[in-house]
Design a protein around this nucleic acid. Structure first.
Lengths: 141, 141
DNA sequence: CTTTGTGCAAACGATTTGCAGGATG
DNA sequence: CATCCTGCAAATCGTTTGCACAAAG
């Protein structure tokens, strides 16, 4: 996920987005993180050292990035909108104890048979959400 | 889904909930509907003829019903929390054009193999969300 | 008659918007 | 130098809360 600066800049330009420090920061932060942060968490992260961005800008950056398909939202909990720079199709695991979210490779559920769905439905894609306990929350030895 | 009044009353009592007209209305409305309405839609539906319930009550009824496991929330779109009286595990189809939501039988994806997941994860359940076009939105003849 | 639910209105948190000034290409 | 972005603050949306009154068991 770690990408050189030039490449990120190029990606943004290719999508027709102006490269501003704030927008760049939001995107590269999202690229560098393994979790799926909320807008609030991104803002906090960016402003950790010194204030570099306002909340309105983070929101609008996320919207712009989503509009051009560089970012997608992940909805697993009520009232919580998370963001993910991994737009390739993949699934999610969510720990029902600590709430940690982890990616599951797309190939994991490649064998799903959609052919028996009600006729008339045209499938574009699908996503599996798995709920359970992660290792940290499992009292396993 | 259509259930006799007595049975609904009994279900609520069994769960330790007092049976008030408002709470009864919320639950039976949810039972009778095939879609997955939002709190707002339920309120509007109940107050269609005459005002019978306030928004605060609808929200608290939904919360009470959810707490005792008679209702669950369905999260498919950003910022939209839908409710479902079908608490049996099942999957969802969402039309990416009109937003209509449709249930998919649990058995449809029963053949999912979770055994190759990263060791350390303890699976409790999973859910598949399929996105596509419903018949009304497909320009098929 | 005790406990719990209702309704109102105010409070709330997350996200959006209007607008003036500033930076990008 | 035209366009688009940023930041602030105010607005908005869905949901929650405090409290006095009413109803359920």
């Amino acid at each position: 996920m770690q990408q050189p600066v030039d490449q990120i800049v190029q990606t943004l330009r290719d999508k027709g987005l102006r490269v501003t420090p704030q927008r760049f920061a939001v995107y590269s932060n999202l690229l560098a993180r393994a979790d799926h942060p909320t807008a609030e968490q991104i803002l906090g992260d960016l402003n950790q050292a010194a204030p570099t961005s306002s909340q309105a800008t983070v929101y609008s950056s996320l919207q712009a990035l989503r509009d051009v398909g560089l970012v997608r939202e992940v909805l697993l909990e009520e009232g919580i909108c998370r963001y993910d720079a991994n737009v390739a199709p993949h699934h999610h695991f969510r720990c029902s104890s600590c709430g940690a979210i982890e990616d599951i490779a797309w190939e994991q559920f490649q064998n799903i048979s959609l052919d028996q769905l009600r006729p008339g439905l045209q499938v574009e894609d699908y996503e599996v959400t798995v709920r359970g306990q992660c290792d940290r929350c499992t009292p396993t030895s």
